[in-house]
Design a protein around this nucleic acid. Structure first.
Lengths: 194, 194
DNA sequence: GGTCATCTAGAGACCGGTGTCTATTTGGAG
DNA sequence: CTCCAAATAGACACCGGTCTCTAGATGACC
C-alpha cells in the first residue's frame, strides 16, 4: 500500500542502544540519528519524545533479561535455584553487553514515578515476571512467603549479583567473577527466615 | 581586608549536595542557587563550571567516607576486618544520607577519564586511601598481595556491600540489611586465593 | 575618608538539544 | 496515470541551562 519502512522500531531501538553504549546517559537523539543514518523526524515519527525512545529501549532490554527466567523452575534445590537466578545476570551481560549497558541507564522506580508518554502500561506490567519468580523462590526456600523471606531472596538473587557486576558493565565480565558471585548469593540464600 | 564572605565553598557544596538529594543527576546550578539564596555569579566565582561544582561536592563526600578507614587497622582477624570494612558503607549511609546520595552521582572512572577544570590533581590522589586499605587487607588475609587476592578483597569489602545498599540509597538503610551484607562479605572474603 | 582587592549581584548572551512543521517520496489500488 | 496513506527528510523554532560580563557593595588598611 504505502512507502516501505526503512527504519523499523527495532532498528531505531538498536541504534538507541548503540548510542547509549557510546555515550551512556548523555546520549542524544542526534547520536541515534548518526548511528542510524536517519533524520530526527524519522525518530519522532515513531517515538513521542526522547525519553520515550530511550525508555523503550530500556524496556526491551529488561524483557530480554526476563526471557531467561523460564529455566529456573527446573532446578530442584531451592538454594541452588536462587544462586542460578543470580548467575543469570553475569551471563546476560556476557551475551548481550549492549543491552546490559542499557539496563544501567534507568531505574524502574524512577521511570514508574513519572512514565514517558505512552509507556505507562508497559511499565506497569514490566516487573511482574521478577515478582513472580522471587515469590516462587521464596516459597520454595522457606515454605511460606514472609516479608523478610522475600526481601532476602530478592537480595540474594537480584541485588547482590547486580552490585558485584555493575561496576564492570560496559566491559566484559571476567570468568573468575562467577565464583565470588555464587558464594555471595549462596551465603545470603542460606540465611534464616526468622 | 575585603568584603566578607557570604557564601563559603562549604556552603555552596552543602547546597549542591542538597540539590542533588532533591534532583539527583538532573540538578542544575539554578537548583543550587535556589537552595543557597545566591545568584549564579556567586557560584561561578568559586567554581569553574557546573561540572567542577558537582564533582567537588562528590569528592568531599568520598573523602568523608574515607575518613572512616582508620579504625579498620585495629581489628585483629583479617576476615572480620574485611567484613567490617564492608559495614562502613551502610553505616556511612545512615549517618550521612545526603553525602551517600552524592556518592551515586559520579563514578570515579568517568571523572578521572576527563576531569572537570582544576580537579585533575584532587582526583588523582582520591583513590589512594582505598588502594592502601585494600592492599593491606589482602596482605593480611592471604599473606601476600596477588592480583586475584586483591580483586577478591575489593569485591568483598567494597563492591558487594555497595551493590546491596545502592538501590536503597536516598532512603534510610533498614537495620535488617546488616546481617545479609555481613554474610555476603564474609562468604567472598573466605574464598581461596588460588 | 580614600584606596583596593574581593566578593555579591543579576541580566542576558550563547549554546546544544528537543521537538515541530512542511515538503517530498513511495508504491499499491482504482 | 492518478490518488492516497504512510513514511522519509531536514530546516529551524524554541527552550532550558550554562556561563559571562559589568556594576556595585564591603571593610581592612593607610
Amino acid at each position: 500500500m504505502v512507502k516501505p519502512v526503512r527504519f523499523s522500531v527495532d532498528d531505531i531501538l538498536d541504534a538507541a542502544t548503540q548510542a547509549v553504549h557510546q555515550h551512556w546517559r548523555s546520549a542524544t537523539v542526534a547520536h541515534v540519528t548518526a548511528v542510524l543514518g536517519a533524520p530526527s523526524g524519522s525518530i519522532y515519527h515513531r517515538f513521542a519524545s526522547r525519553d520515550a525512545l530511550f525508555a523503550s529501549a530500556w524496556i526491551r532490554a529488561v524483557r530480554r533479561y526476563h526471557a531467561q527466567f523460564d529455566e529456573i523452575a527446573a532446578i530442584a534445590d531451592p538454594v541452588q535455584a536462587i544462586v542460578e537466578t543470580g548467575m543469570l545476570l553475569p551471563r546476560f551481560c556476557r551475551a548481550n553487553p549492549l543491552d546490559a549497558r542499557m539496563l544501567t541507564v534507568f531505574r524502574y522506580r524512577d521511570l514508574q514515578a513519572d512514565p514517558p508518554a505512552g509507556l505507562h502500561d508497559a511499565l506497569q506490567d514490566l516487573n511482574a515476571p521478577v515478582g513472580r519468580l522471587l515469590s516462587e523462590l521464596a516459597e520454595r526456600r522457606y515454605g511460606r512467603v514472609s516479608t523478610r523471606g522475600l526481601a532476602l531472596v530478592a537480595l540474594a538473587a537480584r541485588d547482590t549479583p547486580l552490585g558485584m557486576v555493575r561496576p564492570l558493565i560496559g566491559d566484559p565480565i571476567p570468568d573468575w567473577m562467577d565464583e565470588p558471585i555464587r558464594a555471595a548469593c549462596e551465603a545470603v540464600a542460606l540465611l534464616d527466615d526468622h
